[in-house]
């Protein structure tokens, strides 16, 4: 019996008593179905009501739209600078993401391989302090500081994201790298590789799963964050990222809720598209890091 993990677990219930298996299957399927309904239902309601006029929606909230009416979408795309906000969000996410993905593994590698030295030990503890500190305490002082540096803009936001992602990133990576066998790196160094060469030729391949975990976790955070953009990018509508744009509809279209739904839908759209194409990679990517930490 050399079945793979998944296979065997999938098969094992069959070997139990029939009644037991039936009950378990029934309960399991019921649980999954309820879960799916709960998850899909709000999304479904948002979707169908986006295509309705206000009148139609108030008559029948649950019915399918009579026709696919794209007026709402048109109005939002034309009047509200939607693509501009998507662009802002993309800029913030991609730039922060790239820097974080290059920068954090390198820093963590330096720390993980020098833990015996005092400086690195200090640095690690110092960065880990962030794990204990609730975000509320930092909010006002940091915004104050950014204002005095004249960085109340997208670049300031990016800089903060890079800084704030250090704690979790270093925590994940240091623990991941420390358990990697050091022998390969030593061999490379004997062959004359410098640390930098060793890192780019060898280490980076070993930590790839963790990099994907970090990229996904942080990208989700940067893309979806509301609080920091609200405090940093409130000087002009031009600076808004997608979550601010989205939140705005809470009051602006408070009556015309099909319009608000359309706004939510088109704000979710970029993420939905990415998820549809990469969901397998996203889930497995997150799991890769999760198993180790």
């Amino acid at each position: 019996m050399s079945a793979s993990t998944n296979n065997l677990q999938a098969k094992s219930p069959v070997l139990h008593k029939r009644g037991e298996t039936l009950i378990w299957h029934f309960l399991r399927n019921a649980l999954l179905c309820i879960g799916i309904v709960l998850i899909v239902m709000p999304m479904w309601l948002v979707l169908i009501n986006s295509f309705k006029t206000l009148e139609e929606a108030s008559q029948s909230f649950f019915a399918l739209p009579r026709s696919v009416n794209l007026d709402n979408v048109h109005e939002l795309l034309n009047g509200q600078n939607y693509f501009h906000h998507v662009g802002n969000s993309l800029l913030v996410t991609v730039v922060s993401m790239t820097v974080v993905a290059i920068f954090i593994p390198m820093v963590s590698y330096a720390i993980a391989r020098n833990m015996r030295r005092r400086y690195y030990k200090f640095l690690y503890t110092y960065i880990m302090l962030g794990l204990f500190i609730p975000s509320q305490i930092v909010l006002l002082p940091i915004v104050k500081q950014m204002a005095s540096l004249n960085m109340m803009n997208i670049w300031g936001l990016i800089l903060l994201y890079i800084t704030f992602s250090l704690t979790r990133g270093v925590f994940l990576f240091v623990n991941y790298i420390r358990v990697l066998p050091i022998e390969i790196e030593e061999a490379a160094q004997i062959d004359g590789c410098t640390v930098v060469q060793t890192y780019f030729r060898i280490v980076i391949h070993l930590i790839k799963p963790m990099i994907s975990t970090l990229v996904i976790m942080d990208a989700l955070w940067f893309w979806n964050d509301f609080q920091l953009p609200l405090f940093l990018l409130n000087r002009s509508r031009d600076l808004w990222t997608l979550p601010l744009f989205q939140y705005n509809f809470k009051t602006e279209y408070s009556f015309d809720y099909p319009m608000a739904f359309t706004a939510y839908l088109i704000s979710l759209l970029p993420m939905l598209v990415v998820y549809c194409f990469c969901q397998k990679y996203i889930i497995s990517g997150l799991t890769a890091g999760a198993v180790k930490s």
């Binding site: 004249n150 960085m151 803009n153 670049w155």
Partner: peptide, 9 residues
Amino acid sequence: LVLTASASS
């Protein structure tokens, strides 16, 4: 990044 950030007004 820092430079471009402070330049825009």
